[in-house]
């Protein structure tokens, strides 16, 4: 049965428990960071930061301030463009049980630029030491042991839920109705095509450039569809070449 994570950003307070918890569970080394004029740190996802809380603030015309938080990580697409874009069959795999998209050690043999550009959410990062491509694995080790993914476990605000996809969709729909009462622009980001569903109260781009997989320049087609379409033949060619 496929799993899903629902991230209700209206409940997130950017305490960064998920960011820190993820790092601790994965035993990633600390990254030397600098203050750059924002609370968002590290600046971006990286090989040792596969979960990152993004901060964005806006001032409306009447002077009202909005401050939005977006705990960014892999969406675990149901039909993952990165998987379609991979040249090897087992570098990027999808766990049947959970739907988690997993990057194996064979990603070291993939072309990083290809994989990165295939992702409509700008998630994959390269580990310069191992040359592996790295991203969130939905804590597959934990989930297989019937444990919650670390980010969900560490979320003290109740902003994250994990469970059967069907249950999460139900919960998402309920929360959307509640949030829409005060925020007519509220929406569930790419709900039909991803396993990590974000509930946002405002236009997604107010949270993060890549909050949703919008088509950059192809009318009538989402960026994701476009990428998937572009890479699928490439993969076939690659496979045929490799025999």
């Amino acid at each position: 049965m496929p799993k899903a994570i629902l991230i209700d950003t209206t409940r997130c307070t950017a305490c960064r428990g998920c960011q820190v918890g993820c790092k601790e569970w994965k035993n990633f080394p600390p990254v030397a960071t600098k203050q750059r004029g924002t609370h968002q740190n590290p600046p971006d996802l990286g090989p040792y930061n596969v979960k990152l809380v993004r901060f964005s603030e806006h001032m409306e015309a009447d002077g009202t301030v909005k401050w939005y938080f977006f705990p960014d990580a892999c969406r675990h697409c149901l039909d993952a463009p990165c998987k379609s874009g991979a040249s090897l069959p087992d570098s990027i795999i999808q766990d049947k049980e959970t739907g988690a998209v997993i990057y194996t050690e064979k990603t070291a043999k993939e072309d990083f630029a290809t994989i990165k550009s295939s992702c409509p959410y700008d998630i994959p990062r390269l580990d310069p030491k191992t040359k592996r491509i790295v991203k969130c694995d939905m804590c597959i080790d934990r989930v297989r042991a019937n444990l919650l993914p670390m980010c969900v476990k560490s979320c003290a605000m109740g902003a994250m839920s994990f469970g059967e996809r069907a249950d999460m969709l139900k919960l998402a729909a309920q929360r959307l109705v509640a949030v829409q009462k005060d925020n007519p622009k509220a929406q569930l980001c790419d709900m039909e095509s991803v396993s990590v569903i974000y509930l946002v109260a405002d236009a997604p781009n107010m949270y993060h450039k890549f909050a949703v997989a919008e088509a950059a320049n192809t009318p009538g087609m989402t960026r994701k569809e476009m990428l998937a379409g572009a890479f699928s033949p490439l993969r076939k060619i690659a496979q045929s070449l490799q025999g």
Binding site: K23, P30, T33
Partner: peptide, 10 residues
């Protein structure tokens, strides 16, 4: 991990 998230005086 805390220092990574808030590293410097601002």
């Amino acid at each position: 991990a805390l220092l990574e998230a808030e590293p410097q005086q601002y």
